[in-house]
Amino acid sequence: MSDLATAFRDALDLLLSLDPELAAIVALSLQVSLGAVAVAALVGMPLGAVVAVGRFPGRMAVVVLMNALMGLPPVVVGLVVYLLLSRAGPLGAFGLLYTPTAMVIAQAVLVTPIIAALTRQTVEDLWGEYEEQLRVLGVSRLEMVATLLWDARPSLLTGLLAGFGRAVAEVGAVIIVGGNINHVTRVMTTTIALETSKGNLSLALGLGIILVAITVTVSALVMAMRGREGRAVHG
């Protein structure tokens, strides 16, 4: 297909020319999505761990809900966050709509259930193994959660990666709350959407290829980090 060939050439051209406009868009994408993953991790990991080791009424319901929310449609999240942040909404006074912060918030909402649910599963498995040992060592509940999170970190890293992949690839939420404003809230996916709507298919595809290349790179970096972590313990 000639379209695909052109797309690859366009992507290569863009990369090789180190286009500053493109670099800014890529940087904003990474900044927003990494920020969202950081926020989601701060909320989702403790939440997942607490649900994993906690015994409280309605726990099963929480687990089911967390798993279900992994599939939240980005557009719906975008819409809800828009309604919250809109000047006419309850948080309108902060003036956050159409800023990168709004995009971080929307993506964090998308990613938190993913990280929480994967953390819950991972920690619960480890908890089955650790519980009695930690209890005979007299470890407090809070320390147990910290220990489980720490010891499960290689698997949790995969959860973070899944969250990052979801965040950096979604367009539905950020285009609504960010507004795709040039030089302010334009990220890779919204640029792709825009170029597609302009009929600029090969450029859009080129950007898509760059996006995939970035996620692959991030994933490889994380795996390398995991490997080093593993070696550090053995060495």
């Binding site: 193994e129 040992q133 209890r135 060592l137 007299g138 407090s140 313990v233």
Partner: peptide, 21 residues
């Protein structure tokens, strides 16, 4: 109970090793 757990040493039939050195 927990407050005195450390005064009981326990070695399980299947030892539990934490994922650490």
């Amino acid at each position: 109970d927990r407050s005195r757990a450390t005064r009981i040493g326990f070695v399980f039939q299947k030892p539990v090793m934490l994922r650490r050195s």
